[in-house]
Amino acid sequence: MAHATDAHAAHEPATQPEPARRVRERHAIVVGASSGMGAALVEQLASEGVRVVALARRKDALEELARRCGGNVIALAHDVHDFDAVPALFERCVRELGGLDLFVYAAGIMTEVGAHEFDTRKDLDMLAVNVGGAVAWTNEAAKLFRTQRSGTIVGISSIAGERGRKGNPVYGTTKAALNHYLEALRNRLADYGVHVCTIKPGFVETAMLASARAQGRSIQGAISAQAAARSILKAARGRRNEVFVPFKWTLVAAVIRNIPSVLFKGLNI
């Protein structure tokens, strides 16, 4: 347990933690950091001198990442299914960092489901990781940020949450739920100077995309995870509410959102 050094000799008490500057954060947690955008965000932050706790299930991948990043990254193995472990783990992360200004939830799974498959187990698992884990972690960050009246929360959602597409009903549901949750937090925390940024990626080169390709889907125009990470940090620091990455998906989303249901039924998207 970290104890502050005793400063009772001088009677000036411990002051506030150092100011969290509006734009450049210094302590971050990234959940879901072993690959894809999570890993790219950790690398980007570490290269800017931010101290990061990187969490994911796969310890080896995380340690490899930490090695690549030099001394700024603390790697911790954690399975986001383990909701009960989150409060203590969150506290440990903040204590090891010595503060927290940025929290990123980047963990997410998309399980392949067949066109006529309704598999409750698979579906509930996506809900657990994409929503359950997000809520368990982000609630902790929200409590801390509200009481310290500063901090930024970033949630990696997806364009898939915009409409209920036939391809993977529950994956889209998890992202729609995440959007809703993050929007509500944003409104709750706005009065306390805390910002919540929802990131909605389109095609980004990640393991998820690779597996979609392996299933035979043709996907073009994807950007690299590194490029996505840069856009994400820019959006978070610019205190943007909801941002599509890459930006061109803003337009795609606008179109998709406005297709009437009667037509949407017949479309193969």
Partner: peptide
């Protein structure tokens, strides 16, 4: 980790004086 049916509610927060000039996690 001392979990059980009757665990005291708790939360990790920033705790400060009302005047905001002193505080800690």
């Amino acid at each position: 980790s001392l979990r059980g049916p009757r665990t005291v509610e708790s939360s990790f927060e920033y705790i400060e004086g009302w005047g905001m000039a002193v505080g800690r996690h």
